[in-house]
Structure formats: structure tokens, C-alpha cells
């Protein structure tokens, strides 16, 4: 869907990107992960043509973007950035309606669309009349995401959209966005320097160091990363632990208790909890297995340390 072939971008004597190639298949959320100033945002701006490559080609839908109408290309790509970027003189409705209005949708369609999107990002519909200055950080980012999705573009470009939020809010929005993405299956390029964010959201992670791509794979692929010091350092020694928050209990549990004997004390966990929560409970209670419930006290299986290991190494989710 999006393909960059040997793209180089130079600013005067600084090379922001060197021979950069990357492909994002349709329906995949690819996280571009790297430290600040490594050229992540440059990649996004090259794709929506805010800047032009010094050399190399970029294709969207197998079409070279040099040959495409810039305005139409941009209107087909939702764009969300850090600290919302909402227009302060437009209320929530008008902010979401920007691209649909540019595309000359009729009023009734825009109304429907705005209502749908507000529901999708879990904002009350009576927020429509509010100005960005009246919104909290989290609410503003929700509107930002809704605005990016407004004209139902096949592609989303997201430049650290949750970067300015506090940890709790950030995690909430990540989970909600993950849900939305599973439902809508957009082709997403998501830029961040936050490893946990990448783990939570990514189908694929592309790790960058300044100016170049160093590795590409699914989040689980990076557990076994031994060869490249740079990647190990950047992902952190606790990468495996962070990865646990990507999986939910339901995905790794088994029907039988693999520990064999029934434990003397039984602790329970719901199937929707993350695996990291499950491990945390096991450690704090001093047990090797937990009963998994369906949320209504009904036991549907067990989770053990064995299950967790198996789940992470064999079963990349889906």
C-alpha cells in the first residue's frame, strides 16, 4: 500500500534519511520506532508530501506520488500529530469536518459521520460545540484521531499522537485505538519513541537509528534480538516484560492446568486482563497458576508460567 524505495532526504549538509526503504502492506499498523531526531517524522512528511525527497521514490497504491495530485493524495491520508494540532477557532464538530468539507460532502453525511466518529472515539456527542481550549488533553487527542479518520481514508499517518498525554491516559487511548484499528483495518504508519506504545499497537515494528532502518519484524521477533547492540539498548533489557502487556490472558491460557496438581489456594483472573497483570498477580500471591474466569465467576481455564512462555514464543497474536 505504501512503499518507500531508497529514499534519501538531505537538508543542506545534514542527511536526515539515507537510502531508506520500507513497505507497509494494506491493513497493517507499522510502528516506526526510534529515538528523537532519527528521522521518523521525516518519513511521514515525505509520504504526505509536506517535504520532497532528495532522491528515491515513494509509492502509494502502486502509484508514484510524484505523479499524483498532491491535494487528493493528502485528503486520502488521515494525519494526527502530538498535542492534537486542532484548529483553535473551530469547535469539535468543525475540526472533525475539515476534510469532509474540503471534499464537499453534504451536510447530512457530515453530521452522521461526526456522530459515528465521536461514538467511535468514546466522546459524548454533545461535545460537538466545544472549542479545543475547553477539552482535556485526552479528549483533544480523541478528537485528533476522529479528525484523522473523518473522510474514512485508507491510510493513517500518526506522528506520536499520544505523546503529550500522562501515562494513564496514554495507555487508555492506546487500547482504544487498538480496538478501533482492529475494527477498521486501516493501513497505519505510527511514529513513536515509546517502546511500550509500539508493543501495544504494532503489527510490525521498524526500528530506526538516525537516518536509517535497522530492523523490521513483529513485536515478538525482537525478544530474541541478540546480535545488534543498538536495538538491545534501545528496546531495553526488560523488553520481554513489556511485551507481556501486548497479550491478553485469553490468548495464552489453556484448558488444563499444566502445573498438574490443583493448587491449595486458588486465585482468579478475568480473561480480558493482560498477561503482564496475570504474571504480576502470580508473583504477588506466590502461586504458579491462576484460574481464568469469563468475567462472571465462571472458570473457563487456567494460566501458568508455561502458558505465558508458549504463548509469547509461538503465538504471535491473530
Amino acid at each position: 500500500m505504501i512503499k518507500l524505495v531508497k529514499v534519501t532526504k538531505k537538508y543542506q549538509d545534514i542527511t536526515a534519511l539515507r537510502n531508506f526503504s520500507l513497505e507497509i502492506p494494506k491493513g497493517v499498523l507499522l510502528v516506526l520506532l526510534g529515538p528523537s531526531g532519527c528521522g521518523k517524522s521525516t518519513v511521514i512528511k515525505l509520504i504526505n508530501t509536506l517535504i520532497k525527497p532528495t532522491s528515491g521514490e515513494i509509492f502509494v497504491n502502486n502509484q508514484n506520488i510524484r505523479e499524483m495530485n498532491l491535494t487528493n493524495l493528502r485528503r486520502g491520508m488521515g494525519y494526527a500529530i502530538q498535542s492534537t494540532g486542532l484548529f483553535p477557532h473551530y469547535n469539535v464538530y468543525e475540526n472533525i469536518a475539515v476534510v469532509p468539507r474540503l471534499l464537499k460532502w453534504n451536510k447530512a453525511d457530515i453530521d452522521h459521520r461526526v456522530d459515528y466518529l465521536l461514538d467511535l472515539v468514546s466522546l459524548n456527542r454533545n461535545y460537538k460545540k466545544k472549542l479545543p481550549s475547553e477539552l482535556s488533553g485526552g479528549e483533544g487527542q480523541r478528537v485528533g484521531v476522529a479528525r484523522a479518520l473523518a473522510a474514512d481514508p485508507p491510510i493513517l499517518l500518526m506522528d506520536e499522537p499520544f505523546g503529550s498525554l500522562d501515562p494513564q491516559n496514554r495507555e487508555r487511548l492506546q487500547r482504544e485505538f487498538d480496538k478501533i484499528q482492529k475494527q477498521l483495518k486501516k493501513t497505519v504508519l505510527f511514529v513513536t519513541h515509546d517502546v511500550e506504545e509500539a508493543i501495544r499497537l504494532a503489527d510490525k515494528i521498524a526500528v530506526m537509528k538516525p537516518g536509517e532502518l535497522v530492523s523490521l519484524g513483529s513485536p515478538s521477533d525482537f525478544i530474541a534480538e541478540d546480535e545488534q547492540e543498538y536495538i538491545k539498548d534501545f528496546l531495553g533489557t526488560d523488553y520481554a516484560l513489556k511485551l507481556l502487556s501486548r497479550f491478553i490472558v485469553e490468548e495464552v491460557m489453556s484448558q488444563e492446568n499444566s502445573e498438574g496438581k490443583e493448587p491449595t489456594k486458588v486465585f482468579r483472573i478475568t480473561k480480558k486482563s493482560t498477561v503482564s497483570t496475570a504474571l504480576s498477580v502470580m508473583i504477588s500471591k506466590g502461586v504458579k497458576s491462576l484460574e481464568v474466569t469469563n468475567g462472571e465467576e465462571k472458570r473457563i481455564g487456567f494460566i501458568t508460567f508455561e502458558d505465558i512462555l508458549m504463548g509469547i514464543f509461538t503465538g504471535e497474536k491473530k
Partner: peptide
């Protein structure tokens, strides 16, 4: 400047 960038990234032409 971010707002202007956003505006053009959303497909607004210069006069819009």
C-alpha cells in the same frame, strides 16, 4: 506553524 502544516497535510490549498 504546526497548524499550517496540519492544514496543508489535510489537503487544504494555499488559499483555503
Amino acid at each position: 506553524q504546526n497548524l499550517l502544516e496540519i492544514a496543508s497535510a489535510m489537503g487544504m490549498k494555499a488559499n483555503q
